[in-house]
Design a binder for these strands. Structure first.
Lengths: 155, 155
DNA sequence: TATTGTTATACTCTATAACTATA
DNA sequence: TATAGTTATAGAGTATAACAATA
């Protein structure tokens, strides 16, 4: 109960630092954290508006507005579905794909630099613990969709 | 270069999960993440508006509005400074102190539960690595002020 | 009737620029 | 003149409720 609170503190702080880093990189390229999340989600999906709202954890109306603004910047497109004429699919434009790539790879460099002080073994151990936590959390709570981190080739 | 990217992914995901957890707890009690940060900062400070803006990393006008809304809810107070009559100090009300306590302790419970799957040794190792990273980061970049995590009695 | 998505409305959060009062 | 803080304005992000079109 006593040292767990210190762990809480550490986890909270690191999460603020990581998020702040991502937000900083995003704003360097003129987009917000949420817009970055949107683009990142779309890297490997062409969801309907409803699906997108679920993935983002937002109301469909909020999602609609988010897509409006991204579309106005030429980052995404609405593609009408021909199966269900009420429905649309949202997808990245080339410009959007390029932008999310630039932002997330700069971010990945930042995080890699942040982990510099650790030894290779330290990094391996850290990722092991974090993965374990994430896996359990994902099992208990909702799906853990990739949000922002760099896309990996292999895997 | 290859497994570091996986570490990036893991860190990004855990930071989203942790922030999401905090935001969820905050919204349960009717306040936003930023309001929670504001209250958390004020737990052990009575900063001027300028100092507060610096701590939050926001413009003074944004900070002023933030304090307006918190004040309207009875969570903080503006105390005029008698040294410099242009200046004010911002402080928690009892209600604000109570609220931030409730939110952060619920959050701490969430994080503790999240770390359940790890052994005691695992948690200790995790906090060790994270602390190391945070310490180096703090040295290189700005000050690391406590933002949201639970206040500890001893320490 | 139910579902998909948009629109109207209202509020929070944020920054820039202009302002007031004090120093 | 410079500094502390507020206000005016504009835009992003969010939710709720009402709506249109399609199923």
């Amino acid at each position: 109960m006593t040292d767990e609170l210190d762990t809480v503190e550490a986890l909270a702080q690191i999460s603020f630092v990581v998020q702040g880093t991502l937000e900083h990189r995003a704003s360097e390229h003129g987009i917000s954290l949420v817009q970055t999340r949107l683009l990142a989600i779309l890297r490997d999906r062409k969801p309907t508006m409803n699906e997108l709202a679920l993935l983002l954890g937002l109301d469909k109306s909020s999602t609609s507005g988010l897509v409006d603004r991204a579309q106005r910047r030429g980052l995404v497109r609405r593609v009408p579905s021909q199966l269900d004429r009420r429905s649309v699919r949202v997808r990245l434009t080339e410009q959007g794909r390029l932008l999310v790539q630039v932002v997330t790879s700069a971010f990945a460099d930042d995080v890699a630099a942040m982990l510099e002080p650790l030894s290779a073994e330290g990094r391996a151990a850290l990722i092991g613990y974090v993965s374990e936590v994430l896996q359990a959390h994902t099992a208990t709570h909702g799906v853990q969709f990739r949000t922002t981190a760099t896309r990996q080739s292999g895997r």
